[in-house]
Simulated scan of single mutants.
Amino acid sequence: MKNRILSPLASAMLAILFLLHIQPAMASDPAPTSNALDKGADKVVDKAKVTVSPAPSSDDDMSKALTAKISKGSGDIVIRTSDLPAGGSASVAVPAKPKLGNKGSAKPAEKEVHAHHWSYFDGPEGPENWGNLSKDNLACLKGKSQSPININIDRAVKAQLNPIEFIYRPSPLSIIDNGHTIMVNYGEGSNLMVDGRQYRLVQFHFHKPSEEAINGERTDMVAHLVHQHHDGSLAVVAVLMSTTKPASSRKYWWGDDSIKENAFINTLWNNVPLVKGKTDTPGVMIDVNQILPADKSYFTYMGSLTTPPCSESVLWLVLKTPIYVSDDQVKNFDRMYQMNARPLQPKGDRLVKETK
């Protein structure tokens, strides 16, 4: 290692520092500094004794700074940027606060993500606690217009409602098992017209049993077709699914009244991804018109999403006539999700209308 020759000025500086260490009387600090940043830095230096940061731009700057500090009677000889003339570069080595901030913020972020886990079963993550899992879910707990509800036909107002216009066209199948249900993301160009407002079909998904009840009874399953207006508001069409036809429609003279498998549902179940959370696009075309009943009369009311965050002001359109699926098709969904329906919510004083 090469010997470094100190300049006379640097030698003088070191001599001053040495004298300060051996003469405690000179190292006293009679009054605290008024600079808040200096106070924090002095505490750091207290532990590490004397810390001199990298040399400033010139020996002259360092000399002037040292002289000024000594003349003030400060015991901790720490040269800060504020002590140097403009252009000085000395500073105290202080722990990097941004780094600590990043580490500190990572844990709450992870907790926040974990807090969004929810389920349909009783327990800490169940429906009764959805509103406590995240501040975003407060509507689940405190909302006044929550869904699903029981639709009492005797209490529904019979009205001359405008028919729903389903302007649907085929779409490439894009299907995902999202951990709560089987969901199909639908392609652009399919819309719903109701009361002069147009909503775009975004996706549809399934619940077992049906979430909404008619006169206290739920059907085997339901498909929820979720639509969005350009202003962000939502309209959900509920298509009830049943394995049992009404008695009146099962009296055929030719005998067999068993329900055949629904071809549209078969296509979906055959293409459910093997991995949860993975979207599959198997190159199959589907037409959501095939899931609609022939009779499109409906009940309507204002409610909410039936999953967290339970956002309200959702227009609900519950088709009165169910479509029919086979027992095996319901059992296949049951093997994936035995139950994924939210409990019924209080109707309150909300108005439910029914097409005549």
Rank of each mutant, 00 (worst) to 15 (best):
Asp60Thr: 13
Asp60Ile: 07
Asp60Arg: 15
Asp61Pro: 00
Met62Ser: 09
Met62Phe: 15
Met62Ala: 15
Ser63Asn: 14
Ser63Arg: 14
Lys64Asn: 12
Lys64Ala: 15
Ala65Asn: 08
Ala65Ser: 15
Ala65Asp: 10
Ala65Pro: 11
Leu66Cys: 09
Leu66Tyr: 15
Leu66Asn: 04
Thr67Ser: 12
Thr67Leu: 15
Thr67Cys: 09
Gly73Ala: 03
Ser74Leu: 03
Ser74Tyr: 12
Ser74Pro: 02
Gly75Arg: 08
Asp76Ser: 12
Asp76Gln: 15
Asp76Lys: 14
Ile77Glu: 07
Ile77Asn: 04
Val78Phe: 05
Val78Thr: 10
Val78His: 09
Val78Gln: 11
Ile79Gln: 01
Ile79Arg: 01
Arg80Pro: 05
Arg80Thr: 06
Thr81Gly: 12
Thr81Glu: 06
Ser82Arg: 13
Ser82Ala: 14
Asp83Gln: 01
Asp83Asn: 12
Asp83His: 08
Leu84Trp: 06
Pro85Ser: 14
Ala86Met: 02
Ala86Pro: 07
Gly87Lys: 11
Gly87Phe: 06
Gly87Asp: 01
Gly88Val: 01
Ser89Met: 06
Ser89Leu: 07
Ser91Ile: 01
Ser91Met: 02
Val92Gly: 04
Val92Cys: 06
Val92Arg: 04
Val92Ala: 12
Val92Lys: 03
Ala93Val: 09
Ala93Ser: 12
Ala93Gln: 11
Ala93His: 04
Ala93Leu: 09
Ala93Gly: 08
Val94Asn: 05
Val94Gln: 07
Pro95Thr: 07
Ala96Asp: 15
Ala96Met: 04
Lys97Leu: 13
Lys97Gly: 01
Pro98Ala: 02
Pro98Tyr: 06
Lys99Ser: 04
Lys99Ile: 03
Lys99Trp: 11
Leu100Met: 09
Gly101Val: 13
Gly101Trp: 13
Gly101Ser: 10
Asn102Ile: 08
Asn102Asp: 14
Asn102Glu: 14
Asn102Arg: 12
Asn102Val: 11
Lys103Asn: 02
Gly104Cys: 03
Gly104Tyr: 14
Gly104Gln: 11
Gly104Lys: 04
Gly104Asn: 13
Ser105Tyr: 03
Ser105Phe: 05
Ser105Gly: 10
Ser105Pro: 00
